[in-house]
Protein backbone atom coordinates (compact mmCIF):
# COMPACT_ATOMS: atom_id res chain seq x y z
CA UNK A 1 0.00 0.00 0.00
CA UNK A 2 2.87 2.31 0.83
CA UNK A 3 4.32 1.80 -2.63
CA UNK A 4 1.01 2.49 -4.30
CA UNK A 5 0.49 5.68 -2.36
CA UNK A 6 3.98 6.85 -3.24
CA UNK A 7 3.50 6.07 -6.91
CA UNK A 8 0.20 7.90 -7.06
CA UNK A 9 1.45 10.94 -5.19
CA UNK A 10 4.38 11.22 -7.58
CA UNK A 11 1.93 11.33 -10.46
CA UNK A 12 0.47 14.59 -9.34
CA UNK A 13 3.76 16.48 -8.92
CA UNK A 14 5.34 15.61 -12.26
CA UNK A 15 5.35 18.51 -14.66
CA UNK A 16 2.94 18.68 -17.52
CA UNK A 17 5.45 20.27 -19.83
CA UNK A 18 8.94 19.45 -21.00
CA UNK A 19 11.59 18.41 -18.53
CA UNK A 20 13.45 20.99 -16.45
CA UNK A 21 17.12 20.53 -15.54
CA UNK A 22 16.01 19.72 -11.98
CA UNK A 23 13.76 16.91 -13.15
CA UNK A 24 15.15 13.71 -11.60
CA UNK A 25 13.68 11.63 -14.40
CA UNK A 26 16.15 10.28 -16.94
CA UNK A 27 15.54 8.47 -20.17
CA UNK A 28 17.15 5.05 -20.52
CA UNK A 29 19.35 6.80 -23.09
CA UNK A 30 21.24 8.51 -20.25
CA UNK A 31 22.33 5.15 -18.82
CA UNK A 32 23.74 3.76 -22.07
CA UNK A 33 27.33 3.61 -23.18
CA UNK A 34 28.63 6.07 -25.76
CA UNK A 35 28.62 3.56 -28.61
CA UNK A 36 24.96 2.70 -28.07
CA UNK A 37 24.02 6.37 -27.74
CA UNK A 38 25.83 7.13 -30.99
CA UNK A 39 23.94 4.32 -32.69
CA UNK A 40 20.60 5.88 -31.70
CA UNK A 41 21.63 9.42 -32.56
CA UNK A 42 22.57 8.67 -36.16
CA UNK A 43 19.56 7.65 -38.23
CA UNK A 44 21.87 6.00 -40.74
CA UNK A 45 23.47 3.88 -38.02
CA UNK A 46 20.33 3.08 -36.03
CA UNK A 47 19.08 -0.39 -37.03
CA UNK A 48 15.55 0.52 -35.89
CA UNK A 49 15.42 2.89 -38.85
CA UNK A 50 15.27 -0.20 -41.07
CA UNK A 51 12.00 -1.03 -39.30
CA UNK A 52 10.82 2.55 -39.85
CA UNK A 53 11.64 2.20 -43.56
CA UNK A 54 9.40 -0.85 -43.75
CA UNK A 55 6.62 1.05 -41.99
CA UNK A 56 6.95 3.94 -44.40
CA UNK A 57 6.45 1.55 -47.32
CA UNK A 58 3.47 -0.13 -45.63
CA UNK A 59 1.85 3.24 -44.93
CA UNK A 60 1.20 3.81 -48.62
CA UNK A 61 0.53 0.19 -49.64
CA UNK A 62 -3.17 -0.50 -50.23
CA UNK A 63 -4.34 -3.75 -48.67
CA UNK A 64 -7.59 -5.42 -47.64
CA UNK A 65 -11.02 -5.55 -49.24
CA UNK A 66 -11.53 -1.80 -48.98
CA UNK A 67 -8.51 -1.30 -51.24
CA UNK A 68 -7.13 1.40 -48.97
CA UNK A 69 -3.77 2.16 -47.50
CA UNK A 70 -3.15 4.06 -44.26
CA UNK A 71 -2.37 7.07 -46.45
CA UNK A 72 -5.77 6.88 -48.19
CA UNK A 73 -7.37 8.28 -45.03
CA UNK A 74 -4.48 9.76 -43.06
CA UNK A 75 -2.46 11.27 -45.90
CA UNK A 76 1.04 12.39 -45.16
CA UNK A 77 2.06 10.75 -41.88
CA UNK A 78 4.50 13.57 -41.12
CA UNK A 79 1.45 15.80 -40.63
CA UNK A 80 -1.35 13.49 -39.58
CA UNK A 81 0.61 11.30 -37.17
CA UNK A 82 2.57 14.08 -35.51
CA UNK A 83 2.17 13.72 -31.74
CA UNK A 84 -0.11 10.72 -32.01
CA UNK A 85 2.20 8.18 -30.36
CA UNK A 86 2.81 10.71 -27.56
CA UNK A 87 -0.78 10.39 -26.36
CA UNK A 88 -1.29 6.62 -26.49
CA UNK A 89 -2.71 4.55 -24.85
CA UNK A 90 -5.87 6.60 -25.16
CA UNK A 91 -9.56 5.99 -24.66
CA UNK A 92 -11.36 3.93 -27.25
CA UNK A 93 -14.78 5.58 -27.32
CA UNK A 94 -16.52 2.51 -28.71
CA UNK A 95 -15.48 0.18 -25.90
CA UNK A 96 -14.93 2.75 -23.16
CA UNK A 97 -11.57 1.11 -22.52
CA UNK A 98 -8.02 2.22 -23.15
CA UNK A 99 -6.39 1.14 -26.37
CA UNK A 100 -2.67 1.22 -27.17
CA UNK A 101 -1.15 2.33 -30.46
CA UNK A 102 -0.75 -1.24 -31.78
CA UNK A 103 -4.37 -1.93 -30.83
CA UNK A 104 -5.47 1.17 -32.74
CA UNK A 105 -3.45 0.21 -35.81
CA UNK A 106 -4.94 -3.29 -35.71
CA UNK A 107 -8.45 -1.88 -35.28
CA UNK A 108 -7.99 0.55 -38.14
CA UNK A 109 -6.80 -2.18 -40.45
CA UNK A 110 -9.64 -4.50 -39.60
CA UNK A 111 -12.53 -2.03 -39.65
CA UNK A 112 -11.46 0.59 -42.21
CA UNK A 113 -9.21 -1.34 -44.54
CA UNK A 114 -10.95 -4.69 -44.08
CA UNK A 115 -7.54 -6.28 -44.02
CA UNK A 116 -6.25 -9.33 -42.20
CA UNK A 117 -5.36 -8.51 -38.59
CA UNK A 118 -1.74 -7.67 -37.93
CA UNK A 119 -0.04 -9.85 -35.36
CA UNK A 120 1.26 -8.05 -32.30
CA UNK A 121 5.04 -8.05 -32.26
CA UNK A 122 4.95 -9.15 -35.90
CA UNK A 123 7.20 -7.43 -38.40
CA UNK A 124 4.46 -5.33 -40.03
CA UNK A 125 2.94 -4.17 -36.74
CA UNK A 126 6.34 -3.13 -35.42
CA UNK A 127 7.12 -1.41 -38.71
CA UNK A 128 3.93 0.64 -38.68
CA UNK A 129 4.16 1.53 -35.00
CA UNK A 130 7.82 2.54 -35.39
CA UNK A 131 6.95 4.69 -38.41
CA UNK A 132 4.02 6.32 -36.60
CA UNK A 133 6.14 6.65 -33.45
CA UNK A 134 8.88 8.47 -35.35
CA UNK A 135 6.41 11.24 -36.21
CA UNK A 136 6.36 12.16 -32.50
CA UNK A 137 10.11 12.12 -32.02
CA UNK A 138 11.29 15.15 -30.07
CA UNK A 139 7.82 15.86 -28.69
CA UNK A 140 6.89 15.53 -25.00
CA UNK A 141 5.00 12.49 -23.76
CA UNK A 142 1.44 13.81 -23.48
CA UNK A 143 -0.98 11.30 -21.96
CA UNK A 144 -4.65 12.26 -22.38
CA UNK A 145 -6.17 13.67 -19.21
CA UNK A 146 -9.47 11.86 -19.65
CA UNK A 147 -11.15 11.05 -16.35
CA UNK A 148 -12.42 7.79 -17.80
CA UNK A 149 -8.81 6.57 -18.05
CA UNK A 150 -8.18 7.12 -14.35
CA UNK A 151 -9.25 3.68 -13.05
CA UNK A 152 -7.12 1.95 -15.69
CA UNK A 153 -4.11 4.14 -14.88
CA UNK A 154 -4.57 3.36 -11.21
CA UNK A 155 -4.63 -0.31 -12.07
CA UNK A 156 -1.33 0.24 -13.90
CA UNK A 157 0.11 1.93 -10.81
CA UNK A 158 -1.06 -1.01 -8.72
CA UNK A 159 0.62 -3.49 -11.08
CA UNK A 160 3.80 -1.43 -11.06
CA UNK A 161 4.00 -1.82 -7.31
CA UNK A 162 2.62 -5.36 -7.04
CA UNK A 163 4.97 -8.18 -6.09
CA UNK A 164 5.30 -10.70 -8.87
CA UNK A 165 6.96 -13.96 -9.68
CA UNK A 166 9.12 -16.38 -7.76
CA UNK A 167 11.58 -13.61 -6.96
CA UNK A 168 8.70 -11.62 -5.49
CA UNK A 169 9.82 -8.31 -6.99
CA UNK A 170 7.84 -5.24 -7.93
CA UNK A 171 8.70 -3.02 -10.90
CA UNK A 172 9.22 -0.15 -8.44
CA UNK A 173 11.82 -1.98 -6.38
CA UNK A 174 14.22 -1.96 -9.29
CA UNK A 175 13.15 1.02 -11.34
CA UNK A 176 12.29 3.55 -8.58
CA UNK A 177 14.17 2.44 -5.47
CA UNK A 178 17.29 1.19 -7.25
CA UNK A 179 17.35 3.09 -10.52
CA UNK A 180 20.90 4.12 -11.38
CA UNK A 181 22.31 1.21 -9.36
CA UNK A 182 23.72 -1.82 -11.11
CA UNK A 183 22.30 -5.26 -11.69
CA UNK A 184 25.29 -7.33 -12.62
CA UNK A 185 27.32 -4.94 -14.74
CA UNK A 186 24.28 -3.21 -16.24
CA UNK A 187 22.78 0.02 -14.89
CA UNK A 188 19.12 -0.17 -13.85
CA UNK A 189 17.19 2.47 -15.81
CA UNK A 190 14.06 4.26 -14.59
CA UNK A 191 11.83 2.29 -16.97
CA UNK A 192 10.44 5.06 -19.13
CA UNK A 193 8.44 4.17 -22.24
CA UNK A 194 9.63 7.13 -24.33
CA UNK A 195 11.68 5.39 -27.02
CA UNK A 196 9.54 2.43 -28.13
CA UNK A 197 9.57 0.52 -30.37
CA UNK A 198 13.29 0.10 -29.73
CA UNK A 199 16.09 -1.81 -31.39
CA UNK A 200 17.47 -3.81 -28.49
CA UNK A 201 20.97 -5.14 -29.00
CA UNK A 202 20.04 -8.10 -26.82
CA UNK A 203 17.18 -8.97 -29.20
CA UNK A 204 19.12 -8.10 -32.35
CA UNK A 205 15.80 -6.81 -33.60
CA UNK A 206 13.14 -4.20 -33.05
CA UNK A 207 10.53 -4.82 -30.38
CA UNK A 208 7.73 -3.16 -28.44
CA UNK A 209 7.40 -1.95 -24.88
CA UNK A 210 5.34 -5.04 -24.14
CA UNK A 211 8.14 -7.31 -25.28
CA UNK A 212 10.45 -5.43 -22.92
CA UNK A 213 7.95 -5.77 -20.07
CA UNK A 214 7.66 -9.49 -20.77
CA UNK A 215 11.46 -9.78 -20.54
CA UNK A 216 11.35 -8.04 -17.17
CA UNK A 217 8.61 -10.35 -15.92
CA UNK A 218 10.52 -13.43 -17.03
CA UNK A 219 13.52 -11.98 -15.19
CA UNK A 220 11.54 -11.93 -11.95
CA UNK A 221 10.30 -15.45 -12.67
CA UNK A 222 6.74 -14.24 -13.14
CA UNK A 223 4.39 -15.52 -15.79
CA UNK A 224 4.37 -12.67 -18.33
CA UNK A 225 1.09 -11.02 -19.31
CA UNK A 226 0.13 -11.66 -22.90
CA UNK A 227 0.59 -9.16 -25.71
CA UNK A 228 -2.27 -6.70 -25.86
CA UNK A 229 -3.61 -7.75 -22.44
CA UNK A 230 -5.53 -5.29 -20.27
CA UNK A 231 -2.70 -5.52 -17.71
CA UNK A 232 -0.06 -4.35 -20.17
CA UNK A 233 -2.23 -1.52 -21.45
CA UNK A 234 -2.87 -0.41 -17.85
CA UNK A 235 0.87 -0.54 -17.12
CA UNK A 236 1.62 1.43 -20.26
CA UNK A 237 -0.95 4.06 -19.26
CA UNK A 238 0.75 4.39 -15.89
CA UNK A 239 4.25 4.49 -17.40
CA UNK A 240 3.26 7.18 -19.91
CA UNK A 241 1.79 9.30 -17.09
CA UNK A 242 4.97 8.75 -15.08
CA UNK A 243 6.99 9.92 -18.13
CA UNK A 244 4.72 12.87 -18.92
CA UNK A 245 6.72 15.68 -20.50
CA UNK A 246 9.76 13.54 -21.24
CA UNK A 247 11.00 13.61 -24.81
CA UNK A 248 9.98 10.89 -27.23
CA UNK A 249 13.03 9.24 -28.83
CA UNK A 250 11.31 6.66 -31.03
CA UNK A 251 12.90 4.63 -32.49
CA UNK A 252 15.40 4.15 -29.67
CA UNK A 253 18.35 1.82 -29.31
CA UNK A 254 18.93 0.04 -26.01
CA UNK A 255 21.51 -2.54 -24.91
Amino acid sequence: MGWLALALSLLSVWPAQAQTPQDPRKSGFAYMGRDTQAMQQDDLANPAMLTVLEGEALWTTPTGKAGKSCASCHGEARESMKGVAARYPSLDEASGKPIDLSGRIAQCRETRMEAAPLVREGRDMLALSAFVGLQSRGMPVAPPQDERLRPFREEGARLYTARMGQLNFTCAQCHDANAGQKLGAAPIPQAHPNAYPIYRLEWQSTGSLQRRLRNCMVGTRAEPFSYGSAEFIALELFLMERAKGMTIETPGVRP
Binding site: D43, L44, A45, P47, M49, L50, L53, E54, A57, Q204, S205
Partner: peptide, 29 residues
Amino acid sequence: MTRALINIPQKAKRGEVIEIKTMLSHPME
Protein backbone atom coordinates in the same frame (compact mmCIF):
# COMPACT_ATOMS: atom_id res chain seq x y z
CA MET B 1 12.72 -6.43 -51.30
CA THR B 2 16.01 -4.87 -50.32
CA ARG B 3 15.76 -2.80 -47.19
CA ALA B 4 18.98 -0.94 -46.74
CA LEU B 5 20.09 2.37 -45.37
CA ILE B 6 22.82 3.95 -47.45
CA ASN B 7 24.62 7.11 -46.51
CA ILE B 8 26.42 8.66 -49.43
CA PRO B 9 26.82 12.32 -50.40
CA GLN B 10 24.78 13.22 -53.48
CA LYS B 11 27.46 15.59 -54.68
CA ALA B 12 31.22 15.49 -54.39
CA LYS B 13 34.26 17.26 -55.79
CA ARG B 14 36.47 15.35 -58.21
CA GLY B 15 39.20 13.55 -56.29
CA GLU B 16 37.44 13.97 -52.95
CA VAL B 17 37.47 10.95 -50.63
CA ILE B 18 33.89 10.27 -49.55
CA GLU B 19 32.70 8.07 -46.72
CA ILE B 20 29.95 5.55 -47.42
CA LYS B 21 27.90 3.83 -44.72
CA THR B 22 25.59 0.92 -45.48
CA MET B 23 23.24 -1.12 -43.33
CA LEU B 24 21.10 -3.98 -44.62
CA SER B 25 18.05 -5.44 -42.90
CA HIS B 26 19.16 -9.03 -42.28
CA PRO B 27 19.14 -11.37 -39.24
CA MET B 28 22.68 -12.74 -39.77
CA GLU B 29 21.54 -16.02 -38.24
